[in-house]
Nucleic acid binder design. Structure first.
Length: 591
RNA sequence: GCGCCCGUAGCUCAGUUGGAUAGAGCAUCUGCCUUCUAAGCAGAGGGUCGCGCGUUCGAAUCGCGCCGGGCGCACCA
């Protein structure tokens, strides 16, 4: 796209001036203000300092060796040494016309495709999915779609929690307290109930404490891990019941996975993983458990295996096998990383989890690099973390009765609220049509609220905010796309051409310019794993369209303005729909 | 104690590897539907970007020190 073209030209010119220089820092961005043109480059100032040159002088020299004459007006040097680029009307017309013809949508696929394994959602078996799962699920799915659109190979993997100590309690509960009828009615609630019941019975501090329950749970867990047929059968049934719930929710959210390899899948390799780590001298025995300690290659401050107490640095080991012989998620994650690299040869492995696991992933990545240096050198591992969801009181989110808010209930409520608005706004539509619009609008609102904030911010949950249907929300963007789509439908057959110079109004030009920035926005979103850049872009595009729509009649305009404006409507519709779909949000034809 | 993160308008938050006059939504106030959908548009008010020092042409952004808050730190994930 255009910003890359400018970048390439500038970099070539700089290499002429200063051969051998790394020009990676030369960045071209959309102009911050229309009065500065359409694109700007601020990087020369810093470069001038490195070259010990006057920035404006350097800018002059660079421009003397660059030719933009076919595409831009002659670039201006402004302020301390900014370069400002203004599109020729013919260039704008050409880019819009080729896009309208379907040749591109303001982005180009990458020239260096990567293979990414993206690990997200990861719900637990036998527990209802709650709002806490939404960020990982929505964020991971969105990132997967954006990478894919830009031409990367994406492998999504749902690493579900289908193994672990909680099954000891669940098995005791299943055998002693299961209500079969309740299980048929609502399996997740019943499994949750028996888990909580046994959990309370195991805790001497709690009222329902029963001597020996904890030991019983441990025994059931050991039996399960040893392959006891009865326990295995119950365990499989719990997974099947849970998977049905996952499928329902993922279906509603429009989320899918290439693989669902839960923790249990890696069981067969765990002992070998720990043995190999010990054999290679990475892990050693400590207090009966097996753990990875600092190898002293990093300064203590940056070493994830050290922590400071009372002014002294103490070991902060990564535990990979418990003293009782059981494995934990450290060993599972190490085996998982190994499996993924062997199986898919990825360039990147992306873990989308909450920020509280940062230390775990630092230790995991460092441990893996020491265990498999050759494999680790072929892959970048990213912990893409996000903030916690808090209640209105700033504490971890719970309902009044202390329960988690169920994801299914949140989605139901979203659709109900949207239906009220649709019914009010569009009494002329039939019931089925209203419900379908309400579904897209309600779910869109939820996803938008989740993706709009910077992912690292903590997140204060409120029904009103999560389900907001006005302002900076998905329904606003969806609404603008229906307005644009309606104009296009009403136009009938048209020659989609933007004649050079036919766009002159500031509302037209601002809209057109913003369409061109779609590609650079996607690149930015992918570079930092931040779909909120795309949300901001789409809201801005929708706002610019709305202004254009108020100020510039389309169908009543004279040619060639009519065609040019219609092109803007067509392209706005396409970019909004494409952008929303990357966020997992559907766009109705009418609202 | 150490580490990570946060502190921006009344409220909730953006701010794209340091850039030009710090933005949006909500809320409040004023206008705009006989003209392609008013789930909309135009406008107004509202800021010592927690505080201080530093780095430099230039800091909400980088460094150091405080103040305030959240999270994590050995057998849960």
């Amino acid at each position: 796209m255009l910003h890359t073209q400018i970048q390439i030209t500038l970099r070539a010119a700089i290499r002429e001036i200063a051969p051998g220089l790394d020009t990676g820092s030369i960045q071209v961005r959309p102009a911050t203000d229309p009065k500065f043109g359409d694109y700007q480059c601020n990087s020369l100032i810093q470069l001038a300092r490195e070259l010990k040159k006057n920035p404006r002088q350097l800018a002059t020299e660079v421009l003397a060796r660059s030719d933009f004459s076919d595409v831009f007006e002659s670039p201006e040097i402004a302020g301390p040494g900014y370069l400002n680029f203004r599109l020729l009307p013919a260039t704008l017309a050409r880019v819009l016309t080729t896009a309208a013809a379907g040749n591109h949508l303001f982005f180009t696929p990458t020239e260096t495709p990567r293979t990414l394994v993206i690990d997200y959602s990861s719900p637990n078996v036998a527990k209802p999915m709650h709002v806490g799962h939404i960020r990982s699920t929505i964020l991971g799915a969105s990132l997967a779609r954006i990478f894919e659109l830009l031409g990367h190979r994406v492998i999504t993997d749902n690493h579900i929690g289908d193994w672990g100590t909680q099954f000891g309690m669940l098995l005791v509960g299943w055998k002693t307290s299961l209500n079969r009828e309740a299980l048929l009615q609502d399996p997740l609630s019943e499994m949750e109930r028996i888990y909580k019941l046994i959990n309370a019975q195991s805790d001497p501090e709690r009222p329902g404490f029963i001597e020996g329950t904890r030991e019983q749970a441990r025994a059931e867990l050991v039996a399960l891990q040893a392959g006891d047929p009865e326990n295995l059968a119950i365990w499989k049934e719990m997974i099947a019941l849970s998977q049905r719930q996952f499928d329902t929710i993922y279906g509603r959210l429009g989320v899918r996975f290439d693989h669902v390899l839960g923790e249990s899948f890696y069981n067969p390799w765990l002992q070998a993983t720990v043995d190999d780590l010990v054999k290679r001298g990475v892990a050693r025995e400590s207090q009966g458990a097996w753990a990875i300690f600092s190898d002293g290659t990093l300064p203590p401050k940056d070493d994830p295996f050290l922590t400071q107490r009372d002014g002294e640095w103490h070991p902060n080991p990564f535990l990979i096998q418990k003293a009782d012989g059981g494995f934990n998620y450290a060993s599972t994650d190490l085996a998982t990383a190994q499996y993924r690299i062997e199986t898919w040869a990825p360039t990147d492995i992306v873990y989308v989890t909450d920020g509280r696991q940062q230390l775990h992933f630092q230790q995991l990545f460092a441990s893996f690099a020491r265990w498999k240096p050759e494999a680790a050198a072929t892959v970048r591992m990213h912990h893409i973390w996000f903030g916690s969801i808090l209640g209105e009181d700033g504490k971890p989110l719970k309902t009044r009765s202390g329960e988690n808010i169920r994801l299914s209930e949140l989605l139901d409520e979203a659709e109900e609220r949207a239906l009220k608005v649709v019914t009010e706004k569009r009494p002329d539509l039939d019931d089925a049509a209203r419900r379908e619009i309400a579904r897209m609008v309600g779910l869109g609102a939820v996803k938008w609220q989740d993706l709009l904030p910077n992912r690292q911010s903590d997140y204060v949950f409120s029904w009103d905010k999560m389900l907001a249907l006005t302002g900076n929300t998905a329904p606003y963007v969806q609404y603008q796309s229906t307005r644009a789509g309606k104009v296009v439908r009403d136009a009938g057959e048209t020659n989609l051409v933007v004649a050079p110079g036919s766009l002159t109004e500031s509302a037209e030009l601002a809209l057109a310019r913003h369409l061109l920035y779609f590609g650079t926005t996607l690149e930015g979103a992918v570079a930092e794993f931040r779909p909120n850049y795309l949300c901001n872009y789409l809201f801005e595009l929708a706002s610019l369209y709305s202004r254009f729509y108020e100020q510039c009649p389309v169908l009543k305009a004279e040619e060639p303005i009519r065609s040019a404006r219609l092109c803007l409507c067509v392209l706005t519709t396409r970019v909004l729909r494409q952008g929303l779909s990357l966020l997992g949000i559907e766009a109705p034809e009418v609202m």
